[in-house]
Design a protein around this nucleic acid. Structure first.
Lengths: 214, 214
DNA sequence: GATGCTATTAAACATTCGTTTGAAACGCAA
DNA sequence: TTGCGTTTCAAACGAATGTTTAATAGCATC
């Protein structure tokens, strides 16, 4: 019952290996034998430290989010001196880099992408605690940049247009790699991509025509 | 060896059931027993008509694309009298409606989404034969709408910005449904969404600033 | 050193699933 | 009807996998 220091390190080894394998192969195709093999522990460990494979998955998902939050902190500057355009640029770059990071925590982006596509019960708290605040922040930026009032649905669709332009680089990565890999290959390419999305969104928001109906 | 008429109908029943189940549960979670149960045939049928589960999956994928192409034909009008903006609107609406159709061929959108995320060998010919021409068509539209020359990478990123804004409504559907379902609920909402994406893209392309470097 | 709790291990269990098999049913021409 | 090729079926096989068990080893405390 009382976990020792040694137990915690093997527990985290399993968690880390689980994140990688789940991200690479998905929940079903990832076997506990693969995970434990990668972690260098016995298969019974997953049942000893976590209840079963599903509970391990839930913990791995939370763990991935905590690590990603630590590495790419949200911290969208809301200070007085920062223009809405600057906040937009900061957000897009931050979000895109987190999605495309394949080196250290490469599995975070893949993991959450799989979860969004085939949602489990584990997604609900993540949407509420992590995605909703992010949507709210972008919503405030959009309102400040569009030169005329927006109804709620149009506002929401603008936010989705922004997220969509970032997410496509992760979601359609296999297609991009097959058609034009150089635009996300190196760090400087990713910076250029972030800059493009920012310019594209800024041009759209500041020149968006008012909806005829309103 | 000589397939009878009766054999073809059961073959297609299996193919259709396979498309639905594969789209709903993914390749691994879909069992041939489920598929055959839904089709009302014996489990041995998948081995008799197709070689095995994987071959069935490949055929189901092609089948879904053929049906979708039939229902939402590409036919981007390239005629003289059609403005680039009109072609853009047509493309976006067509693409979005196909992605969001959940009634008749609802599985097409889910199926290709799964395939893009976890690509198999079956994706390569689809990218070449279906996606590449689509990218080319959008590329031509973008060139005509942006008021200054674009380098290849910027052009490609513009195309991805357009696709991303459409794809997000399918890829992030679970999140949208949890946060603001009304924007994709009914057919008129989907029309409004298509119109939004069109206006957003048009505003961006026609007001995109030239890249400083070029 | 003895004791009691924690951690690890190899082996086995039970289930699921893709695939195969061999026979029965069916359709159709001679 | 008889015979033959095609299609369907129930049953079983074999492999993979999540989970459990029972025994062993490690480690701190007295």
């Amino acid at each position: 019952m009382i976990p020792s220091q040694l137990a915690e390190v093997t527990r985290e080894r399993v968690l880390r290996a689980a994140g990688e394998v789940f991200a690479e192969r998905g929940f079903r195709d990832a076997t506990v034998r693969d995970i434990c093999g990668k972690a260098g522990v016995n298969v019974a460990s997953v049942n000893y430290y976590f209840r079963n494979k599903e509970a391990l998955y839930c913990e791995a998902l939370s763990f991935a989010f905590e690590e990603a939050e630590e590495r790419y902190p949200f911290d969208c500057p809301e200070g007085e001196g920062v223009t809405p355009a600057e906040r937009l640029r900061h957000f897009i770059r931050n979000f895109l880099m987190r999605l495309l990071d394949d080196t250290h925590l490469g599995w975070h982006g893949k993991l959450i992408t799989r979860e969004i596509l085939s949602p489990t019960a584990a997604l609900v708290p993540i949407v509420d605690s992590i995605m909703k605040p992010r949507f709210d922040a972008v919503r405030r930026i959009v309102i400040q940049l569009v030169p005329h009032p927006l109804d709620d649905d149009s506002l929401e669709r603008c936010v989705l247009s922004i997220f969509g332009q970032c997410l496509v680089y992760r979601h359609a990565r296999s297609v991009i790699d097959q058609m034009r890999p150089q635009i996300v290959a190196g760090p400087e390419d990713r910076e250029a991509t972030a800059e493009h999305v920012f310019r594209f969104v800024l041009a759209a928001l500041t020149h968006l025509p008012p909806t005829p109906g309103t």
